[in-house]
Design a binder for these strands. Structure first.
Lengths: 171, 171
DNA sequence: TCGGTAATGAAAACAGTTTTCGTAATCCAA
DNA sequence: TTGGATTACGAAAACTGTTTTCATTACCGA
């Protein structure tokens, strides 16, 4: 199993790569490079995890308070179309966005206590799904697997929970 | 693998059981039995598959056109709270409701062409998930696995697709 | 640097869902 | 069996997250 560490530092080179890739996408599509889009994507790629529009907007406004959520939404759609970002929904009613990790595809475990979302990948799981689809005369384009539950490490979980509450207070 | 056949006839005894169970739930909670609720649940349990609020409302109105969607929403929430029904979201932005099948838990394959949703269950898949959670020091409460793709039986798929389009026309 | 095109921001629109509020129905206790 | 407290109803308004509109501004190739 591969587990992605959400606490790893931001890889500046990787961010630069993403920014370049996005710039190329924009060019290819005959769109324009703008101050706002640059602010938004550079903010986005420096954030880790599964970012909601709200969360991103808060950060973006720190760099430029005049940017509104319409532009954030629009830019996120472009990021998704460019293939640099994936949209996810974990059932709390709002979309979350995730910059592609080193691991191309992965599934998620979501802690209902502290909100931690961790990513994992397992080839046997993938193979088994293919097998089941085969049996059912079905061709898989993509899939989604989410495990909802709780961290067993209660101490760490509790710390994250409190951090989250503190953040919610501050907002 | 267990595959649930969505074309099996409605089991009247099972419907009666559900109705009784719901009546007991209502009583237990100190709520009231009403004509509207009876209409809604009896309509719901006679429908197969993954019913949207819209679809249910259309059917309910055939029995009693005066019933509005607020009541349908409210009754569906009660059904979910009673544990007789599960809410699902397959990414098209609307909630779908599913009366528990004979198989307690199951996953879904969703055809993006014809909209067919089929259910399956595989113990190895479940076991593997448990194993992965274990490795990650995580306790699973529930999970969700959805395979999005297309039926390989193009003829059958196309027929369903056309039926669906016809229904959309009619509405 | 001009000018056509695309992007922006604020506000309105939108879809699905939830809530409100005045009226009506249920059902327990008398 | 009724009275009356309580719950449910239906229509409409409110709400939430997201998308669109529209007038204005910014980009960028000629």
């Amino acid at each position: 199993m591969v587990t992605i560490n959400p606490n790893s530092p931001v890889d500046e080179d990787l961010v630069k790569d993403k920014e370049t890739a996005f710039a190329e996408f924009i060019q290819r599509r005959g769109l324009k490079t703008t101050r706002q889009r640059n602010t938004i994507i550079s903010t986005f790629f420096r954030l880790k995890g599964h970012i909601s529009v709200e969360e991103l907007l808060v950060e973006v406004k720190k760099a430029n308070p005049r940017i509104g959520y319409a532009t954030v939404y629009r830019t996120l759609h472009l990021l998704v179309e460019s293939g640099l970002v994936e949209e996810r929904r974990f059932g709390d009613g709002l979309a979350r966005y995730e910059g592609h990790s080193a691991v191309e595809h992965h599934d998620h475990m979501i802690c209902l206590e502290c909100g931690m979302i961790s990513e994992f990948y397992n080839p046997r799981l993938e193979a088994l799904q293919e097998h089941l689809a085969e049996e059912n005369n079905f061709e898989i384009y993509r899939h989604r697997l989410e495990l909802y539950g709780a961290c067993k490490d209660k101490a760490a979980c509790d710390t994250r929970k409190k951090q989250k509450e503190a953040r919610a207070q501050g907002a």
